[in-house]
Every structure is written in structure tokens, then in C-alpha cells.
Amino acid sequence: MSAKPTDTTDAAAGVFLILVAVFFGWQTTGLETGTSLRMGPGYFPMVLSALLLIMGVLVLVKSFKGQGERIGRIAWRGLIFILPAPIFFGLTVRGLGFVPSLFVTTLIASQASVRMKPLPALVLAVLVTVLSTLVFSYALGLPFRRFGPWLPF
């Protein structure tokens, strides 16, 4: 066994599992474990956290032996634009209302690709917004405010 993991992806995977297990284990500490008749809310999570920890250690140990693909390139631009899209929708759908919120959400998501030029992005966002409003708000009658209280009209 060498001093450095030969399978870096699995080494990272092992560390990831250990961190998650520690997090859940730490969150479990405040919960009662109870008795076997009345198992407390902490019983099951405690057992699971311990299991996950063991598995994390095993994955980490094995990473010193096997060979595997490297992690490879990370889609930074994708992460920066895709993930905020639903968050923006969540923050504004009540305040701005369905129509403007969805429009901006689509616009944000569309920027995740380098191939998307500004004009097609605008056209796409308009189309998505108009069609969704027709389908969800008018045809299906979902209880969304089309324009919310943050807007002056």
C-alpha cells in the first residue's frame, strides 16, 4: 500500500461519506435513543450514521489500492447559472409573481451554456413564460399570482 491513494476519486468519495456521516452523527447527538419498546427519534439515525462512517472509511482505505477514472472537468459555468435558477424562482414567485419570476428564472438558466446568445435567450425566455402562463395559470387554474405585490401595478 502506497502512502498516496491511487484512486483519487474514491479517496474523495470516502472523505465525502465520512464528512456526511459525521454531520448526521453530530446532528443526532441531541436526539433521544430510547428503549427497545419505545425507540427514540435518535435510535435509527445513530445506527445509520455509524454505518455510513464505516462505509466511508472502507471506501477510503480501498482507494489506496484500486485504479479509477479521475474526477475530470467540473461544469463551473453550469453550477453558477443552473443552481441559482430554482432558488431565484423560490425567492420571487410570491413577491414578483409567476410571470416575471419565471421569465428571469429561464433567462438565468439559459446563461449556463456558452452557446446561448443574448437574443435567442430573450426569445426563449419570452416563449417559455408565455406558454407556461397560458398552460398553468389560465388553462389549469393553478393558484399562482401572475404579478405579485412587489410590482407597482
Binding site: P86, F89, T106, L107, S110, S113, R115, L124, F136
Partner: peptide, 13 residues
């Protein structure tokens, strides 16, 4: 690149 913004909008709704 046209498909996924639509997917994101639909998912959100």
C-alpha cells in the same frame, strides 16, 4: 442549450 433552460423552468413550476 435550448432544451435545458426549458427543463429548468418546468422543474421549478
Amino acid at each position: 442549450y435550448i432544451l435545458f433552460p426549458i427543463i429548468m423552468a418546468m422543474c421549478s413550476i
